[in-house]
């Protein structure tokens, strides 16, 4: 039996700057530049809302839905909801518009792998574009389970991304290094 094949293309979003090293560096710089202008509470609140938005998206997948069901059914879910309502965490964090934190992660990783980073850094700083009122995601109610699921989805993506980054030069587990013997240099397109 033949395996069905589907083809997809990854392209730049039409309503955002193209993914180039220059624009991604500008995005990192702009995020860092905003930090001194906002309070710690705003930063934590925005991060909480963003992780919860990711959790809501993840709950639409098969694995995420199972995970969400387990969180809701367990004691941790009950206690978390109790803390959430008593300390009014949900009420506080539900006013922040979420930002695309997985795009941030992917872009930051791409900057690490860019072969033209030095040239991009030598250019005059590119002013980062603003999101614009029409593209701001409306704040949504943030629940405890949303946040936990978002943390799970985000950390899973981080682990996978770091493993993929390290894969070309990762020596096999259980290797014994003998004194005096120089191990063969790993080769790959990601290595200089």
């Amino acid at each position: 039996m033949s395996t069905p094949v589907a083809r997809v293309r990854l392209v730049d979003a039409a309503d955002a700057p193209a993914r180039t090293t220059v624009t991604m560096v500008a995005s990192v710089a702009a995020r860092l530049g905003v930090l001194p202008l906002i309070s710690g509470a705003d930063a934590v609140g925005a991060l909480t809302a963003s992780l919860a938005a990711l959790g809501r998206d993840a709950a639409r997948t098969a694995d995420g839905a199972r995970m969400r069901q387990a969180i809701d059914a367990g004691r941790a879910g009950g206690n978390g909801n109790l803390l959430w309502s008593t300390l009014r965490i949900g009420e506080w964090s539900s006013v922040f518009p979420p930002s695309p934190i997985l795009d941030h992660l992917r872009n930051d990783l791409a900057v690490l792998l860019a072969d033209d980073l030095e040239a991009a850094l030598e250019l005059p700083p590119v002013p980062g574009e603003a999101t614009g009122a029409s593209h701001v995601r409306e704040p949504e109610p943030v629940t405890f389970a949303d946040l936990v699921l978002g943390l799970w989805a985000f950390s899973t993506e981080v682990v996978r991304a770091v493993e993929v980054l390290a894969a070309p030069a990762l020596p096999p587990a259980g290797v014994v290094a003998v004194s005096g013997a120089t191990p063969a240099s790993p080769e790959g397109s990601l290595l200089r």
Partner: peptide, 29 residues
């Protein structure tokens, strides 16, 4: 709430990725 939305509108835009499936991209098994 209005100020938060305003803050979001002035937040830096993030370069993003869109997944575009082929026209006959349905997977049947």
């Amino acid at each position: 709430r209005y100020l938060r939305l305003l803050q979001g509108a002035f937040a830096p835009a993030t370069p993003g990725t869109v997944m575009m499936p082929d026209a006959a991209g349905e997977l049947q098994a």
